[in-house]
Structure formats: C-alpha cells, structure tokens
Amino acid sequence: MRQIEITQVTKNYRLGKTTIQALKGVNFTVEEGEFLSVVGASGSGKTTLLNIIGCIDAASEGSVKIDGIEIKRLNDNELTDLRLRKIGFIFQTFNLIPVLNVFENIEFPLLLMNHLPKKAVVSRVNALIEQVGLTDFVRHKPAELSGGQRQRVAIARSLVTNPAIVLADEPTANLDTETGNSILALMKAINMREKSTFIFSTHDPEVLKYADRIVNIRDGRVVNPEPPVALCLDGRGY
C-alpha cells in the first residue's frame, strides 16, 4: 500500500540575496513497511527531503501526501499531531532531552499523547528498553550514556508511539562502524517485527546493505534508483 507520495517537490532557501534550490522537482513514492535508504553526498538535499516528509519543514512547491493526506493543507497543530502519532524521528545527534533519563526520554511522546493508562505506558517503554538493550541504563541521563546507547534511546523513543513511519537522518554518522552496524541491524529487526516504514539517509556504503530500496539523490534531484548491491559495488563513494 502506498504510504508516502512525493510529487514535483522543490525547496528553496534564501541565503542573504541568493536563493538556493535544495530540491528540484523530486518525485517518488514509499510503500508501507519499506526499509528505504536515501543516499547522496553532503548537500545533495537528502536531509531536506527527510525534513519535508517528517513535516518539520515545508516544500516550496509540489505535493507531499502521507496516507493520502496533503500535508501542506494542515495547520501547525495538525502537523504537530501528525508528527506525534504517525512519525518517529531518529536524529544524527540523538537529540535526547538532557534532563530526562532513559525511561523518561522514551516515555515522553507517550505522555504527550495524554490518554494512555500509566500501566500501558510503563509496559510499552520497558518493552522497548529491552528491545534496544538498555535494561541496565533505565535511570541514566543522556550525559551518562555512550553515543551508541543514546542512539538506541532515540530509536526506542521514535518507536514508542507505534508510528507508521520512522525517519532517521544519518543515524550512524556519529557512531563507530561496529555500533553503526548494530543500530542498523536493530532498526531492520524492528522494521521486520513492527512493520513500520523506515526511511533513513546515509552516505555510508556500509549501511546500504540493510536497505530494501535506495533513492539516490544528487544536486536536489532523484536520479535513477538503483539496487543496493550495484550501488555498493560501483565504488562511487556513497
């Protein structure tokens, strides 16, 4: 089932008197439950694309539909609600709330939803903590965790509301190769189990082997989607 439809999306930024076109008429679709990688060099527009899909930025032109809803027609409150209920975010820099511990960071989106019984919240959070392997760090604050552990917390937080879509912007960029691989493996496993759609951006060829499909973006345009193995082997440096 088609979950995301992106049609002729452009994004312009003004930098002083200059206008920079980050996306130039991007078209593609994402099916439900896909594990999709957006690949491109730095500045190619992949983060901008993820931000637009995640409703934290707006396209200058074109159409973005999530589950058939045209997101540019939604107001700020509706977009906030959409992000809370349908989209999970995993940031490159983890973006945990520093004053909350592991449990509370993961619990945070559920409390924003404001209608779940306390017991259900605790059970859901504990289950995710176990899945990401942080059972021994429940009361630790982000500052007391390693990069990999923080990213695991971020993954758990992104999944806690059972979102239909999880967006991860270069989730392994700040991690060593081994930790990066384990994070990708974890994301893939959750994708298989929860059937959530995962879209992650990367320019690390090592992580592409986990992707079901790759969207190759260059200079703000989607160029021929190629199978992951071919990309990995052609040595173009992705």
């Binding site: 609600d81 809370l84 209920r85 975010f89 973006n95 924003l112």
Partner: peptide
Amino acid sequence: TPEIGTMRAIGAPK
C-alpha cells in the same frame, strides 16, 4: 533552542 526544537519535532505542541 535545539531542545525545544526536538520537543516540537517529536510532537510537543506550542
């Protein structure tokens, strides 16, 4: 700002 931005991104209303 990044902390508040994160809260907003993960669904905290204004």
